[in-house]
Design a protein around this nucleic acid. Sequence first.
DNA 1: TTGTTTGCAAATACTTTGCATACTA
DNA 2: TAGTATGCAAAGTATTTGCAAACAA
Lengths: 142, 142
Amino acid sequence: MNPEEIVQMMSRQGMRITDQRKTLATLFARAKGYMTPKDVYEQMLHTYSGLSFDTVYRNLRIMHEMGVLEQFVFEDGIKFRLHCQENDHHHHVICLSCEQTYPVVFCPMEQIPGLPEGFRPVKHKFEVFGYCKKCREEEAAQ
Amino acid sequence: MNPEEIVQMMSRQGMRITDQRKTLATLFARAKGYMTPKDVYEQMLHTYSGLSFDTVYRNLRIMHEMGVLEQFVFEDGIKFRLHCQENDHHHHVICLSCEQTYPVVFCPMEQIPGLPEGFRPVKHKFEVFGYCKKCREEEAAQ
DNA sequence: TTGTTTGCAAATACTTTGCATACTA
DNA sequence: TAGTATGCAAAGTATTTGCAAACAA
């Protein structure tokens, strides 16, 4: 998705489009992996020297509520990225080096045996972490 | 696992066995689900009125490092429970109501298709959330 | 007796809130 | 113009650290 599409999406949801929010859109459009609130703040600070942290938090929260961003709880804290554009149910493969994510359509719930008797599943998580081709090649080249 | 076994395990790892740590062992032996540091603090406060939060944090961290406890990042924060005693690789089914967990031997990695070309997986997460038989029955009985 | 554990106090990190001003629509 | 967004200051929550006294081995 390009920045304009993101801005449109935000606008459609009733958000007012400020310069900062345009920059946020550009930032997330360009981002390869996930970003922490701190990452976002630091990136934005280049352009807006008077930027405050609470505005970043507010916008991240709103953009998450609007479904523009996706929030992911890593061991080391919460991170954000653009909301996944895949329509069908899918899972993610995440590179531990560049944090790029790849969708996988395979879903283990379709064939899971051995659920406890009487257990009614309502949601599940399946994520694979590792190293993508590009990062492995770069690593090997050093 | 009973409290004595947990205490032995801690002792074997070189931890000194204080009254508080014995109580911690008892607490986790009895706990059905996961506990937040706050839960633990509040439980312990019944017995130790002068208890401080930092001691709870310290002990939880140490017991996690020693492999006595298991740490789980939920959306609403970090929680702890006894480290799983299953030997073989397995995954967890977690009840959203009582937080009781059940092991499942099935592992989706054994048959996952569609990994991006050249991606080398190093770890994965697979967790199923829902409601266990007991909680569903209790819910229905109301 | 030695070295670990504890409580206290304070520091740090992260996130949220109230309010006046600035800006979008 | 009406109402939202921003920066500032401050508060709230979660977690960590340094230190002296208490305690386990």
